[in-house]
Amino acid sequence: MRDINKSVFVVLSSKGGAGKTTAATQFLIPYLHGVRGEGAVLPKLYEVDVKNNASQGLSESKLFHVELIKDSLKELENVIVKESANFMRDYPIIFDVGVGEFDNAFKAFADVFDEGVTYILPTKTSEADFGNTFDSIRRIKAADSAAEFIVVCSDSKHGADEIEFLKDEFGLVFGTWFNPKTRKPFVPLFKQANIPERFVVVKSSELFDKTTTSYKTTVYEAALEGLAIKGFLQDKNSTEPHAIDKAIADVKNKGVLESDPKKRDELLGESEFLRKTRRHYLNCANYHDNFLAPSFREFSKLLS
């Protein structure tokens, strides 16, 4: 079984909009936190992209350290050599590779890390996504014959527990759609690329955009807050409400008693914000239990 603290993951796609950043920051990094525990050294996320720093939207996240690689190939090679030579390393590494840096990046990883590299390839359902995923695998294998691949069914309508519906949704990946010329099923991606059928699912949710935009953190971290609230509600021995419930009540009571109309409106507005935040946390907790956690379990099986 691999040492998760020595693991190296490269999340990449030669096509924009495939769900790469979501896979890296909303799935892979939360997974690593869950399996490694609270006190573990934070993983490093290297963003290999001269045009964008996608993790800026997660400035409040406490799950990872991020570094931006700007001088793509030269800086990337230096980072790879430095990290591979660090025999005392006790943290996983994630490389989030921008589309424009695809060719430079995967060539730099071959035969460097002793533990090997796992390539995470997000894909959606279109023919363009399928073609780019297949092409990505082909080009990586040409540079690194020992490469391991895990396909992420990104922005899916179905969860890991709806496998038949999922395979029909991603028909080009799993070969469940028909070729209009031959009237036979398309050849599955895994068979065409000659790789094992290893995949996980990231189910579509508006919670990703909402959490990043309004709270600058991950759905997983919001879910942990929601799970804590649920725990308080289910604990029959608890005499105190959860901190956010206490804050909502305190702010609302102050607002009701406030004689200054402006201050009263501010306090009542703050109470409403906290109430909506609480509901958001609980929605994230439900998403975690129903979709994230099952995908985490499947991912653990693939890595073992």
Score class of each variant (00 low, 15 high):
V202S: 04
L233P: 14
A228P: 03
E225F: 01
S205G: 08
A247G: 06
L207R: 04
L224H: 02
P196A: 08
L224Y: 05
V187R: 11
L233E: 14
I229Y: 12
K184T: 02
T211S: 08
T239H: 15
A249E: 15
K236M: 12
K236F: 11
I248T: 00
V201T: 04
R198T: 02
A228F: 10
V201M: 02
K203Q: 06
R183K: 14
T218C: 11
L189I: 07
V187I: 09
T211I: 04
I195D: 04
K236A: 14
T182Q: 03
G175Q: 02
A193G: 10
F208G: 09
L172R: 12
A223S: 08
P196D: 07
K236T: 15
G231D: 12
K184G: 01
K210A: 15
S238H: 05
A247R: 10
T182W: 03
F208L: 10
A193V: 03
A222I: 10
I195M: 09
P241L: 11
W177G: 11
V173M: 01
A222F: 07
D168K: 07
N194I: 03
W177A: 11
F174S: 13
H242E: 07
A222D: 05
A247E: 06
V201K: 00
F208S: 09
K191L: 08
E197T: 08
P196V: 00
E240V: 12
A222H: 04
Q234W: 05
F199M: 08
F208H: 04
V173D: 07
Q192F: 01
P185D: 05
F232M: 04
V187E: 05
S205W: 00
S205D: 05
F170Y: 02
K216I: 11
V200G: 00
S204E: 07
K181S: 15
E225P: 07
V201N: 01
L189R: 01
Y220L: 03
T218H: 03
A249D: 14
T217E: 10
D209I: 10
E221L: 01
D235F: 04
F178L: 14
T211R: 02
I195K: 02
T176R: 06
P180D: 14
K246L: 14
R198D: 08
I229C: 11
G231A: 15
L233H: 13
Y220A: 04
L224V: 06
P180C: 01
D168E: 09
